[in-house]
Nucleic acid binder design. Structure first.
Lengths: 209, 209, 209, 209
DNA sequence: GATGAATGAGGATTCATTCAT
DNA sequence: GATGAATGAATCCTCATTCAT
């Protein structure tokens, strides 16, 4: 019974390394143009072995979404729900995001999702309903709460949440698509600090429309 | 001796209809997965005829960039350069953008560019330097000018320009990737009106950092 | 009735120029790889016009054989039949051949025939029976006659004829295949003068076997 | 970790059988008209497998040259260099050649080379400089040596070498192009015996020009 | 008669997937 | 479990041939 546990752990580990290889190949060439052979080579296994762990190219794609997207979303939602005020939440978020974008695999995943959304409409819809919309909802609710507590006067929290999120998408895509090597061409932290300032400055003034 | 069996105008028209078909196929399936056959069928010509007008799939891709991206950028830059004040420019832009996104082909093109950036690094870099960076530069210069005229106090116009642009990218991708059919799921005009309010509200306060 | 005659002459002229263009294209690329388009361009007509004169690519090939091979063969056979002695015939021939090879289209035709013999077995067989074998037969009969007249003692005129002809084939192929530009790399006239000397020297000694 | 599922020997064997299949297809239809599919079928493998061993049709062509031409040339040059006299060399050669032509694949290769010389000028030039010219040079040098030893009086060994070789080319092409089935239509051995006699008879008389 | 735009069958090549070792 | 050889469906692209102008 013990050996099984070890074997399972090793198996999970291998699955993981395959998925990371797939992430990079899908990111670099797109799903359709990526070759199973290259994915196998990238994690130093044979094509045959690859199929021992994932039954098809599609399975790889789905495994990838599962592996990377879900945890990030949990993190973000947790962050929103634990926030005591809209302002502190925005501060936390605008400091957290540059790190996620700069270091993480999220830009790669976003790029893949966008590029292959036509091929996997169900996956993308599923991603939308289980990852993106809950995250946006958590943000909106935060602003609803802060409106009720009197901290803010945001007349459309749903839209405001989208404004909050926009530079994340912009930066992720910029990094994934336009950055030459690692050089973004602008200072990500400063961008989000500016974003933070603009947002906080707008928390109280929405009524004056 | 060589009567032009088909007029140049008709030829250009046909090229155009082919490019629009390609736009849709590339958009729906991605460049790699799109089939030349399907592109041909979509504009009711044969595969052979398609190759009379474009020598390869790549040529189709490049033609697309030329057709769609360039004009939009000219329009945007013109808009920025004719602006008499930062505020009026922002108003114009935030009213113009929802229309571009809702009706135009820009979201499709952006989606294609992102999805296939790995396959066409040169095209994407070229797009970056000839379309995106000039547009961002025009925006930045607008804010530089309004800073000098005393209208605004924006301490980093380059980054501010990126904040201004972020919801355009966000909305374009949302439309191209997540929208079910035509339903965006939120009110694009309202979003940009909110964006406009937040931005204008921030034109004077950047110094208080 | 007159206009018809002129028209027919013009037609024949045009057919001829087409065939010469075809000769060069077939020679340069082989029958299968040659393009009708290129043949048309080479004689400054359109592809459509080409088909007014020849119904198919095959028809072009057949027309070519007809045009070039037959006359040469007539010339050669005439030469053999008019010869008064084996020796004078050999002299005439070995002086005639270098010119044919150096200036004429025969090497090109031979090269085409060889290269595409697999695709047109009937044409090649037809060429063999109507052009080559009669020519070889004329040669053989010449030697039979000279044997009977006592001029020569060739015990196998059929094989001797083939020896006589060998350097023609060798040179034709060398020119068509290996010559860089026009430079054969050796002196064709000298080769055939040597050939002549060797042959004449052998006319009397075949009995000593 | 990477057991060689197939031995190197087996791999080489397979490559060989593919090349022989390619030889026949190229021979029968010409390079351009030969179909990869047919080559594969001829050696009972799939098209995909064919590409495991040769990356392209061109690679197949080049492999063929390597496989067949080189060894023959080595054999011929060795023969010339080991000869103790011009006469014995000619005897050896004229007895060896009918066998090579009758049984070997050289006629097929020669036919292919001629037919596709326009498509592969580099290959043909390479073949000329590495196979044909060395062989001709070896022959010439043999006659130079025999001239010096007093055995022969050949005033132009380079041209004489070409005369020696001519019936080889003639016979090879006759077999590849004109022979119906296996029947050449004449006696190859006798032809070369006659050739031998004519040549040997000419070794001493060249001076009398 | 002449043109060249249009067609689509045909062929080289790639690559996801299978399976014997 | 691991391997990589083998397969063949799928897709880009070419080019002989047709036909409306």
């Amino acid at each position: 019974m013990k050996p099984r546990a070890i074997s399972d752990a090793a198996k999970a580990e291998k699955k993981n390394s395959i998925l990371l290889a797939a992430l990079d190949e899908f990111y670099e060439r797109g799903f359709a143009a990526a070759r199973m052979d290259d994915i196998a080579k990238r994690c130093h296994i044979s094509k045959g072995t690859l199929y021992l762990y994932f039954n098809s190219k599609d399975a790889l794609f789905n495994g990838l979404i599962e592996l990377i997207a879900k945890p990030k979303q949990q993190q973000l939602i947790g962050m929103m729900n634990q926030a005591t005020s809209a302002q502190s939440a925005l501060v936390t978020m605008t400091e957290f995001m540059p790190v996620v974008i700069e270091q993480g695999q999220l830009p790669k995943l976003i790029k893949i999702l966008i590029g292959d959304s036509g091929v996997f409409p169900e996956v993308v819809q599923n991603y939308k309903t289980t990852v993106i919309e809950p995250a946006l909802a958590a943000l909106s609710q935060l602003f609803h709460r802060s409106n009720q507590s009197g901290e803010t006067q945001i007349d459309d929290p749903e839209l405001f949440a989208r404004l909050v999120v926009s530079p994340v998408i912009f930066s992720a895509i910029w990094k994934a698509v336009f950055a030459s090597g690692d050089a973004l061409g602008f200072d990500l932290k400063k961008l989000f600090r500016l974003h933070q300032k603009v947002l906080i400055n707008s928390l109280h003034i929405d009524q004056e429309k």
